[in-house]
Design a protein around this nucleic acid. Structure first.
Lengths: 206, 206
DNA sequence: CGGGACATGTAACGCGTTACATGATTAA
DNA sequence: TTAATCATGTAACGCGTTACATGTCCCG
């Protein structure tokens, strides 16, 4: 009854399991926020949906890990079939590329904003993206060099040893950082244009 | 029964009507592809949905324009209420910002790609974004300076005279161009990393 | 005589989101 | 006692997508 199909985010979760070994839905949500955020945001309930889907597809196995003090963890790991799926996904051309950015929309129709509105939205956006940039820069530091994510005890499937010195994560981090820098440069430019008056403003960084 | 609510793309279409005067659903789809594409992609059927929604909200008026040779055009124009809606939307903080990019996902999990797959996907992506960049650069030329979009006959609502010398469109075009340039720089970097061998290229690996 | 542009729409579907539900532990 | 963290899920909803439907004109 449920569609036996996979979507980009299905492979996103699957890939996390492949690289960072057996994980619970809870773990996966948190890792997603750190790793997948710049290319595909996920909400918690969707992680569970994808896990159920992949369970049915036979791409993951589930093992109940009992805990006395906390609720049981359901720990998922990728199967042989899962690796095959990941691999054949890599052979297809990607077909989703989209940006949805309400701020850009508001800037485009800035003529219709009341005085101060656009200005305020731009400033808040600057704060938001400045924070994102910091996060990615810190992620970049803590994630490069060695596969971090303390689950030191669990030794996953031999395949995922790649995580020890995977260069792709660094590439993605670099993308995220360059994107945020570019976005910020543009935001400052936009702000200047929207409100050229007020303060001598001796430029931020460069 | 249908939700009397508006979403970012609702305002996107509304803004197009505000700036470029009375337009049909068909026109709106084509203008969207040129103007809104970098910040919010739209498919045709959705344009009609939004028009229906806005009709119910009283944000737009519809006028049937009969044509002898072709099917009738239903021409929509923004109402007073529509302008008010646009304005109060500008006062809210934006709440959607997302990127969904399957290529980035494939790069992140590049370890699981068979030889050549990642390479091919990167090369195709370069072609795609190189074309986008060209499009935006040409749009920038034809759209800046004067409000183009030949509907020279129709004189829309006085409000929309802003389109004659609107600086915001230029700002958005600049964003789109800078984004594509950054993306392309990154793609070339990624390609080099994925395939350092082949061609004399100077200083491959160690 | 087929294909593209012009022109408008509907039907079906599910991903992604929001909100709800539960309940223990720990720290301010 | 209030809130955060740990932990797992379900229900409802609609935007956004894909595919379908219809028909004319124009060009090669």
């Amino acid at each position: 009854m449920e569609p036996l199909e996979a979507y980009p985010i299905t492979y996103g979760i699957l890939g996390l399991l492949a690289l960072w070994g057996p994980l619970s839905g809870y773990d996966l949500k948190h890792i997603s926020d750190q790793i997948l955020a710049p290319m595909w945001g996920v909400v918690q309930s969707q992680v569970y949906k994808e896990l159920r889907r992949m369970k049915e597809l036979g791409w993951v196995d589930m093992e109940r890990e009992e805990q006395e003090l906390r609720p049981d963890r359901k720990v998922y790991s990728i199967t042989e079939k899962g690796y095959t799926a990941l691999q054949s996904w890599q052979a297809q051309p990607p077909d989703v590329f989209q940006i949805r950015d309400e701020l850009l929309l508001k800037v485009l129709f800035g003529t219709f904003a009341s005085p101060g509105d656009l200005d305020r939205n731009l400033r808040n956006s600057i704060v938001e993206h400045e924070m994102r940039l910091l996060t990615y820069q810190q992620n970049g530091l803590s994630l490069s060099g060695k596969g971090t994510f303390r689950h030191d005890n669990k030794r996953p499937n031999p395949y995922s040893d790649a995580s020890q010195e995977d260069p792709y994560l660094g590439l993605i981090t670099r993308f995220a950082i360059e994107f945020e820098k570019m976005y910020l440069r543009w935001l400052y430019e936009a702000l200047e244009m929207v409100e050229p008056r007020q303060e001598q403003a001796a430029g931020g960084e460069s």
